[in-house]
Write a protein that binds this DNA or RNA. Structure first.
Lengths: 106, 106
DNA sequence: TATTTATGAAACTGTTTGGTTGCAAATATA
DNA sequence: TATATTTGCAACCAAACAGTTTCATAAATA
């Protein structure tokens, strides 16, 4: 069973859940109302999101409020950062090439 | 068959391929050498990455060079942007709360 | 206390996934 | 031209996935 952030956000319903609770913590029932699927299916998604620590639970009586764990979301951002760095350095290389060409022109 | 960027980056081998070719375009054989899997499996991953436009092909004789499509990578970044905005506005709210508290103190 | 409500979990099902093996097509090379 | 190399693709398989139905548990409420 693969269970990491990237596998978690692969499912469109889970991305929907993430976006929904990003605004405010919600209970499974309230979340399920926003999707065209059963409460149990949402519950399973929440379990997956919990397992990879993308969401946190907060019990209040018999209700459980799920909220987004921003720290874990930043993991995705960090992964993207790598590429930004690669692209930046590539642009710098391009700059150098252009600079060399300019020099040769002189 | 779901085929979007998020589904594409869900697989760890595909994330590896993406990172690998981010530095420089490579052929399937060369890519496969970096992973503990068959050339055909890599070929399948490349097909998926191509279908969701995360990579571009460039034929050179019988060799095909695969390179990353940066534009599509930015789609992931845009998705993350939403959350950054939500969090920022939440921090601003927090600022307001703190500001109000300060005023009350006076 | 009996009933309703909120939730998670187990069992089952059809579909998707990631991998393998084998083959065909096209290009390079002897 | 015959052979080797590079590649994609189809068929097949076991595992994982997303969903459903059903049930158990715990808290709220009548």
């Amino acid at each position: 069973m693969r269970r990491d952030v990237f596998q978690a956000i692969a499912d469109p319903t889970r991305r929907g859940i993430i976006l929904l609770i990003a605004f405010q913590a919600m209970t499974p029932n309230a979340i399920a109302e926003h999707f065209d699927t059963s409460r149990q299916a949402v519950s399973k998604h929440l379990r997956i999101l919990t397992e990879c620590e993308l969401v946190k639970q907060e019990q209040s009586g018999r209700e459980i409020y799920y909220q987004l764990n921003e720290t874990k979301m930043k993991e995705i951002d960090r992964w993207l950062e790598q590429f930004k760095k690669i692209w930046e350095s590539r642009f710098n290389e391009l700059d150098n090439v252009l600079l060399t060409m300019k020099k040769k022109k002189k």
